[in-house]
Amino acid sequence: MAVAVEPQFIPGASLRSQLLAGALRHTVKPVLGVWGCWPSPLWPAGLLDYAARFLPPTRGARSQRVRLDECDAEWTPAAGGGERAVLYLHGGGFLTCGLNTHRRLAARVGDAVGAGVLSVDYRMLPRYPIGDAVADGVAGYRWLLDRGYDPNRIVVAGDSAGGYLTFMTALAAAELGLPSPAALVALSPLTDLNPAGKLANPGADDCPLIPRSVIVALAEITERVNRRAPREVGGRTRSPVDSVLTGLPPVLIQVGSTEMLYPDAELMAQRLGAAGVPVTLEVWDRQVHVFHAAADLVPEAGRAIARIGEFVRAATGDAVVSESGPKAALTPAEA
């Protein structure tokens, strides 16, 4: 039975969030635009994650490397123990970022949920097709199951390209006969590899971070790499929005209202609802792509992550008591 999806608009953008958007628009976005016009493999994609090695961890976080079938991962136990676990899949357009860039964000999600976090250092483009990244996500899910975590206490989460992997990992796990996780959380997710819908959005140029050229380049790289992959039928990779979604667990999607990927979040919510999957779509006023990563600077990021904790605790069977109620819009904090 189809489920009605009514986006929850979270109004107001703090001064700090507006300053962040302006800074990204005039610094990072132009650099990404240049890469989008000349997406050569000579660009040092791994440099970003290497540089992030020097970021301090969140307070009390103690991580250890683990080995999955074809890639590494990092396990951060829950503070004080706990029965929940988060499988986290980082963003970066399938091309960059990694455990270092996303360690603090993954830890914050784990703290909000009260769970240990397994972050997967999945294989990436252009060396590997996206299907290999999905397989690595499934391997991470098996790792949690093999260590005794109840699937009803596991949530799969990811941001941007990791949002794509969140959905595809859950779908692949179901196809393999594995039990369903308790919930899925997608932050500013990429859900459609076809760039047409994003480029046709009238607000596409308003995105403070991602230029059009990056969306086009990513689609071209994905198609070129997947032509070499025999497992990908016709050299194409399935997108979550084009998949059979029936049977997925409850989903939370959070996205900024001016993001390049806003159409992907909206379309995915509609497709999930049509498939009868309970879905909550939160649209945060003028927040940048994966604003959650700026929790040290932007008050909206902390509130969004707190709402992730509320959602997951409800999905895993714990009562949630919220000041504003689970569906009420939050008032913007002062900068």
Rank of each mutant, 00 (worst) to 15 (best):
I10P: 00
V134F: 01
A186I: 06
A61G: 06
P263H: 12
A133G: 09
P44S: 11
A265L: 08
Y50L: 14
Y262W: 15
Y50T: 12
P230I: 08
P332R: 12
E259W: 06
M1H: 14
I308Q: 11
A2N: 11
A112W: 04
V5H: 03
Y141K: 12
A186F: 04
G276K: 10
V279C: 10
P240W: 08
L330W: 12
Q8M: 14
P179T: 03
P263T: 12
L32G: 02
L261F: 14
A21S: 13
K327A: 14
G247E: 03
R271D: 02
E323R: 15
W35P: 06
V66E: 08
A51Y: 07
G116K: 02
V109P: 04
D69F: 07
L330P: 06
V233H: 14
I308R: 09
L125I: 04
L218E: 10
V216C: 07
A275I: 00
N100F: 05
G273Y: 01
H289Y: 07
R227H: 13
L176A: 15
A301D: 06
Y122L: 00
P250K: 11
L47T: 05
G98M: 05
V321G: 03
V66N: 07
L19M: 15
R59V: 12
A293H: 07
Y88W: 15
L89I: 03
G302A: 09
G114W: 01
V241W: 01
N100R: 12
V255C: 15
V66Q: 08
V255K: 12
V233I: 14
A133P: 01
R16P: 01
P129N: 13
L184M: 10
